[in-house]
Design a protein around this nucleic acid. Structure first.
Lengths: 188, 188
DNA sequence: ACCTGAACACCGTTCAAGT
DNA sequence: ACCTGAACACCGTTCAAGT
């Protein structure tokens, strides 16, 4: 006799994301998710292979949201302005969802890379701006330089490892403007 | 009747570092460390407050080693050469101790910042090179830009999140050379 | 077909009891 | 003074039993 479903992948993922930010990475337990969606822990196994799989679901959903936000930014003809806006948006995203941000950028113990088309779509805006600044030949290198810097900065900021004083806000602005100039210099 | 010590903070820290790299962050358990140093888990409590404290010990020891390695690099009069060597050394360190590297740079769930003098000593070489390239005024901003980029790049590389093809080696070299040019440009 | 309780092997942490 | 076993409250995961 079939039993009606009491939860879904979507509900489980949403619950996991909330718990991750509220309770931290170690607080994201199968039992906590199960309780929130109203089932017992073993019942999650029907939709989620194991805890790593749950983390992967969170990472993919987060990455999708991040890509949507970055791609929705207005595109101007000024690459320097666009990259600053993109950096600010990425930073705001990291501050809003610090624990998910760490997972997406490989900083978490568990990392399962999302599928290629999701990646390609999520980095579209960054690649466009990078090509605009650095030229098509160096677009990927420029995009990776931006991403590495921004992800590293935000992860360190969230981890509270900027401990030598100075203005962190100023350091972020310094970084993005100098990076833009650097990757642009090849085209001069 | 006093009992002779059967272990020490140093031995515990060394064991923890080995286990961290061999078994991953979640494999770094009090029980595993206790077994390796030859005591029962509760006995660790005499020297280590809790698991977070154990992680802090690992982070500090790792940071100390990293600083020593970076400060031991030969200093030339060519800031561009020096920063490339430093970036390469940092990357080699990250590849040799990926899990500890993540903890040091705030990418891990638990982050307890080490004491200030340890930080100041460990980043001495980087600050010298940054001042050489960007001038004393912008040395801290330049150092933070370098560190954020390098840490982000290495964390992403270790997390295997560079999934769009291209040459990752080339991207690293592109990044460090363009960063050096960018922070140097203010002095021109 | 889905969900459950029970069970198992872990984990960190506390604490009274040993030496 | 240090170490231990026992205990407690967790955790992920498996699985036979229920509906």
């Amino acid at each position: 006799m079939p039993t009606p479903d009491r939860t879904s992948i979507e509900e489980i993922t949403a619950a996991a994301r909330e718990i991750l930010e509220a309770e931290g990475y170690s607080g994201l337990t199968m039992q906590a998710v199960a309780e929130r969606v109203g089932v017992r822990a073993p019942s999650l196994d029907k939709r989620v292979r194991n805890r790593d799989d749950l983390v992967r679901l969170v990472a993919e959903a987060t990455f999708r949201d991040l890509g949507a936000q970055l791609n929705a930014l207005p595109a101007t003809t000024d690459g320097h302005k666009d990259i600053l806006e993109l950096a600010n948006a990425l930073r705001a995203f990291g501050h809003a969802q610090p624990n998910a941000f760490r997972i997406v950028f490989g900083a978490s113990p568990t990392t399962v890379p999302p599928n290629l088309e999701l990646i390609a779509h999520s980095v579209a805006a960054l690649l466009r701006i990078s090509a605009d600044l650095a030229g098509p030949e160096q677009a990927l290198n420029a995009a990776r330089t931006f991403t590495a810097w921004a992800a590293g900065f935000i992860i360190m900021e969230l981890g509270d490892v900027f401990n030598l004083g100075g203005d962190v806000e100023d350091a972020f602005h310094y970084g993005v403007t100098h990076l833009a100039l650097a990757v642009h210099s090849d085209r001069a």
